[in-house]
């Protein structure tokens, strides 16, 4: 906690003695009687000696209280607050960020994934069926899947060219070569397991496909909600994900949204119909969502 800040007027006087900073306009207080709002405008220097204008809007409420409370309301401030002006001071009282009370509907659901299951899932994963047990405890150990996978791994290791470890395999054929790489115990990168190339390219393509079904709708009005958006796009086909940008402070729409369709055809149809469509007095602009890495 910093020391209670000096009254700004004193600060100005002090600065003037040294002739460093010019004086500031006096603070203005406006009082709106109908709405009960008090608007206080202050000018002060920030830490970089830049002039800043601080506008605070305070709501003035009248309450009927007991005599005891009323008498305490008019006490003079003391201690470190002795020089404070009436009303809450910005150096001791701040309005915090919005906090939501989180209701717990089903206790088991909330507690367990966080504390226990997650940790186990992280560490124990069967290489064959991806279950939460060790590979040698796999219930499918003797089944076809397991044997196939093993066979696939061996086949893959013996095919030259597709194997990253090919040079070391060649070493192995030489007499007196180091170790036995290429054997059953050799390291196979996770992406190359289960039959080779499929891993990397498949994963990459899967992501691209997901991106290409996404469309961007811009020029939405500020009052648009998720429900409005859903009404707007559900006629074109099923969607998998919807994101409506909102302003952090007031929760209003920032004017654009991303929709992920399940099918590319639906997305294309949506673009065709919605681009230039008049919605809530604004003309929408709709196009494919551009991936961030392009």
């Amino acid at each position: 906690m910093p020391e209670a800040r000096m009254n700004w007027s004193e600060e100005v006087e002090r600065e003037n003695e040294y002739g460093e900073l010019p004086s500031l306009p006096p603070p203005v207080e406006e009082f709106d009687k109908e709405k009960g709002l008090k608007i206080v405008t202050e000018y002060r220097y920030d830490s970089n000696d830049k002039k800043t204008k601080v506008v605070r809007t305070l709501k003035v409420e009248k309450k009927l209280v007991s005599k005891g409370i009323a008498s305490r309301k008019h006490l003079a401030k003391y201690g470190k607050s002795a020089n404070d002006k009436p009303g809450p001071q910005s150096n001791t009282t701040i309005i915090g960020e919005e906090v939501h009370i989180q209701f717990i509907s089903n206790k088991e659901e909330v507690e367990k994934p966080e504390e226990e299951n997650l940790e186990k899932l992280k560490f124990i994963s069967c290489r064959m069926c991806k279950g939460t047990h060790f590979t040698n405890n796999c219930p499918f150990k003797d089944s076809a899947m397991f044997l196939q996978a093993e066979a696939g791994k061996k086949a893959f290791n013996t095919v030259p060219g597709t194997n990253i470890l090919a040079p070391s395999s060649a070493d192995d054929k030489k007499p007196g070569g180091p170790g036995t790489p290429g054997g059953p115990s050799s390291y196979v990168p996770p992406a190359l397991r289960d039959g080779g190339k499929r891993g990397v390219e498949g994963g990459y393509n899967a992501r691209r496909n997901d991106d290409t079904t996404a469309i961007r709708i811009s020029n939405l009005s500020v009052n648009t909600s998720e429900n409005d958006l859903e009404d707007l796009v559900k006629q074109f086909g099923p969607t998998s994900k919807m994101y409506l940008s909102r302003d952090k402070t007031n929760g209003l729409c920032k004017g654009f949204a991303y929709i992920h369709f399940k099918n590319k055809a639906d997305a294309a149809k949506a673009i065709q119909y919605l681009n230039g469509y008049g919605y809530d007095h604004l003309i929408l602009s709709v196009d494919w969502s551009k991936s961030t890495n392009q």
Partner: peptide
């Protein structure tokens, strides 16, 4: 403190 608006009445120094 005043609890209604968080204003500090004073410190006991």
């Amino acid at each position: 403190w005043y609890s209604v608006n968080g204003e500090r009445l004073g410190t006991l120094s």
